[in-house]
Design a protein around this nucleic acid. Structure first.
Lengths: 339, 339
DNA sequence: ACCAGCCTGACAACCGATTGCCAAAATCTG
DNA sequence: CAGATTTTGGCAATCGGTTGTCAGGCTGGT
């Protein structure tokens, strides 16, 4: 089939179409962009020519003249953290559906990388989705003021956010442990700059107070399985019989460490994770954890961002969306040892 | 601190600098791009002004006029497959170090999505890294001819490739099983269009032949944990005592299924995975698998691509790089049951 | 048939750089 | 000190579109 234009290697431009149809380039631009600004007959000729020449608009040129880039940045602190997989997939799907390109950046848990990335993206993206930002509130608010932004798991005044409501599952988790007979529980905290960790701890300690059980905090720990060893040792040393852990990565690392030390889970120590990441269901023992619709969170974040970009398109401009979370009980929690 | 230019919201352009320094825009461009084309004094004035105005070049404009976009596409079949995490991180780090932006795309295991993505990237990226392509050889070669490309785990004539040499570890794996007394082994194959799976099977069956053991192939199976159930059932039904599995995802799924069915690993069935992904070390039992330096593979792929983009920069233009693989023995393999 | 007013499409400026070409200036040479 | 050579920096075209402005053609009303 000779559908390919005989033309040279150079891809077709708007000018080629114009020449072929005997009209001006601007007319071609209009015919393709806002079709009713152009006579239907001309338009059809142009569209036919565009198809024949296998025309695809040059996105750089479009971006340069229109100011819109058709790209959205997605910033995550650590690409290799499974928690972000589903989030990324959610944003990717929704962005693609809307005709946007996703620029995925791993900010390496660093506020500086995050800040410089945002600065760069100001010019090269129409907006950004920032997951688990490591920036302080001022910096984040400033960045949000300079370009459309949606945060995930980070609540800053005036910045639209998708919040994965893990704190609300904290009482559930605590009650679960209490019902198993635990009275002394540790919260294994995440990075000091993580708002998520702070919120989880706040919710947990409030719940503990109202129930009259002893909950202490240990940490902070980096959100990696490797941190699990230190966390496990700290937990054992603190004498608690159960831990609620900032995230599954650390929790899984703790599982491994406890096993190494000859301690049994859940007989000697119950562990509750957070996020229900890939692996939480098949680690040993399977991890009791808090689950939420992460991929959906990604999709919602994109929708909220697009609503900012096209204010006209209506759709009640929510600026805060909360994703539900629930406790998923598996094998890593059990009755407190009679001790 | 008032480092910020008093200037309006609009970010500084090359013209602002030119005006401030009383030179032409082209001079500014040169001063910043190839500094020795311009008098050192002028250059310093310009650089100072650039700093003062907080100038950052507009990447679209740069791309439009220079033809180079400063972006590299990275295509993976499934973002949520942990195998690609380290690869992605490797490419990201190396690309960032070289001043490139990574455009990460999930092609959803679909050749069509892959093809259309490549088409789009032709205009908006300087090159692409294609991992585990689902395209046929002709389509891939054609795409490679139209833009700089490096493949990962895909060998096509004339296309530079990084090959993760899992096949070379197949004899190791087989010998490991033989030494444990297994004489009847199944290869659990991956997607029919996966060249990796084909190569692994070829290596395995060759090794089996030379050793006189019985190896059969079952599958194909999609590279997801969910496929593990069907794979496990098929393996059990085939009567083998050990499986070498296309990848860890399927292997982990099999572990779960076998447990559900009341079969013990490794007592009733030994399982060898492939890739040593996140989770392989903490699943139950920990998975014997084949490991390679995946992140390094990503970095090498980028280096090879950059070598294509800047041919001058020297650096022996290899067009094929093989990453070593070795067997990592964990708990999922054990002596064959006397049966 | 005449004039107002709407359609249509062309012209040209512009987005923010890069780059070939050329002239003025500075330096070197004899 | 004149002529040759090298620097240095400006002009203007170009990349591929978008968009404001405007003139001419067509329509309709009277």
């Amino acid at each position: 089939m000779a559908t390919q234009p005989v033309a040279a290697g150079r891809p077709a431009t708007i000018h080629d179409i114009a020449a072929l149809c005997g009209v001006a380039a601007s007319t071609v631009s209009r015919a393709l962009a806002n079709p009713d600004r152009v006579n239907i007959r001309t338009r059809e000729r142009i569209q036919a020519a565009a198809v024949e020449l296998n025309y695809t608009p040059n996105s750089q040129a479009k971006a340069l003249s229109s100011g819109r880039t058709g790209a959205v940045g997605v910033l995550v602190p650590d690409i290799t953290n499974p928690f972000y997989f589903d989030l990324i997939r959610g944003t990717q799907l929704q962005l693609k559906a809307a005709g946007y390109t996703q620029l995925l950046v791993d900010t390496e848990e660093s506020d500086e990388v995050e800040a410089s990335t945002l600065e760069q993206l100001r010019k090269s993206a129409d907006g950004v989705i920032v997951a688990a930002s490591r920036l302080n509130d001022e910096a984040l608010a400033a960045a949000a003021a300079s370009m459309p932004m949606v945060t995930v798991n980070r609540d800053v005044d005036g910045v639209p956010a998708v919040i994965i409501d893990t704190p609300s599952a904290m009482p559930q988790a605590l009650d679960h442990l209490i019902s198993l007979g635990h009275t002394s529980v540790a919260y294994v905290s995440g990075p000091a700059v993580s708002q998520s960790s702070a919120r989880r701890w706040a919710a947990l300690s409030a719940a503990a107070e109202s129930r009259g059980v002893d909950v202490r905090i240990i940490g902070p720990f980096a959100p990696k399985t490797q941190s699990g060893a230190a966390a496990a040792d700290a937990a054992v040393h603190s004498g608690v019989t159960a831990c609620i852990v900032f995230n599954d990565l650390i929790a899984i690392g703790m599982l491994q460490r406890l096993r190494e030390r000859g301690l049994r889970v859940p007989e000697d120590m119950s562990i509750v994770g957070c996020d229900d990441i890939f692996g939480a269901d098949f680690c040993n023992p399977p991890l009791t954890t808090m689950s939420s619709p992460i991929e959906q969170a990604g999709r919602v974040a994109v929708s909220m961002l697009l609503a900012q970009l096209n204010p006209l398109a209506g759709g009640g401009n929510r600026n805060r969306s909360v994703m539900p979370t629930h406790l998923t009980v598996r094998g890593s929690t059990g009755p407190a040892s009679p001790n």
